[in-house]
């Protein structure tokens, strides 16, 4: 019941396709925020452009629907001005790692306390199914036949030759202080990871592998939403599990990084402002 206070009910039903994973992300996020009992007047969501970015219209937070790839840059200004605000930044895969790639790595490095969610469905949905930096060359996963299959997209009619980023490795390499991955299938895990990410003081990245049945699924013969969710269930495994250790074809889920580093807004307060006042 109480999660309804967190949404703008008049905009439902949402614009996402039937079976889209983004609704599941919204659902887990609302439950996480509700569990955390965050003061709603402090809640902000800053999103970019794309299917994923529309999430900011549905939450009854202070919401900013910004430019493609630049949500983190807007959020940086917002948080610098008012560090007490609780900021969530949902992004799509192209949004976060292609056009917003520079902002993403620098946000990881800067370490401002906010939660970045990369809703990775391996495709540009809003523009109709083009490959992204997270599409990769092959479908991947445990099944031998599909593993080697090429990824197709409207802009990769002969199969994609673009290697993919690994969002987790990218975030780790760029210095994010909390990095996790889950999937749209694992809704309770997602809810838990969102809470952990929120409670982490610093820049948190949670990658959520999502299904896009309309474009990625259709272009790549992955079946409908149910089959795609099944794929996410079958091809991912918890960090530290035996199954994962024994099978390198599985994708790891869980918390990859959780470390304490100076948070930028606090540093600005404690170091820069303090020194400026001493002079």
């Amino acid at each position: 019941m109480s999660i309804y206070r967190l949404i703008r009910q008049r905009f439902f039903p949402h614009l996402w396709c039937p079976g889209c994973g983004h609704g599941m992300v919204l659902n887990s996020l609302l439950h996480a925020v509700d569990d955390l009992g965050i003061d709603q007047s402090q809640l902000c969501m800053v999103s970019g452009i794309g299917c994923s970015a529309r999430i900011s219209g549905y939450v009854d937070f202070h919401s900013m629907h910004t430019l493609h790839g630049r949500a983190l840059a807007f959020a940086t200004g917002l948080k610098m001005a008012r560090p007490e605000l609780k900021v969530f930044v949902p992004m799509g895969d192209g949004d976060a790692t292609a056009i917003g790639g520079n902002h993403f790595i620098h946000a990881c490095r800067r370490n401002i306390d906010m939660v970045a969610i990369v809703m990775n469905n391996r495709i540009y949905g809003m523009t109709g199914g083009q490959y992204s930096p997270l599409s990769g060359r092959q479908i991947g996963g445990d099944d031998e036949k599909s593993r080697e299959r090429s990824v197709f997209a409207t802009t990769a009619p002969y199969g994609s030759i673009d290697r993919a980023f690994d969002t987790v490795e990218l975030a780790k390499g760029a210095g994010a202080t909390f990095v996790a991955r889950t999937t749209a299938y694992h809704v309770q895990e997602m809810r838990r990871l969102f809470k952990q990410a929120y409670e982490h003081k610093g820049f948190s990245v949670v990658e959520v592998l999502c299904q896009c049945p309309t474009y990625f699924g259709r272009k790549n013969k992955m079946g409908g939403a149910v089959q795609m969710l099944q794929w996410l269930k079958d091809n991912t495994e918890k960090l530290g599990s035996k199954k994962l250790e024994e099978n390198p074809n599985l994708i790891a889920r869980g918390v990859f990084v959780d470390k304490d580093e100076p948070e930028y807004c606090s540093e600005y307060e404690n170091s820069v402002i303090a020194k400026a006042h001493k002079e």
Binding site: T66, R70, A73, F74, N102, H106
Partner: peptide, 19 residues
């Protein structure tokens, strides 16, 4: 704040202004 590029700088001032 010194941002990563010019685009980010313009975005950041929008964010701060809304705050």
């Amino acid at each position: 704040v010194q941002m990563e590029d010019e685009l980010a700088s313009m975005c950041a001032i929008c964010g701060a202004s809304l705050a």
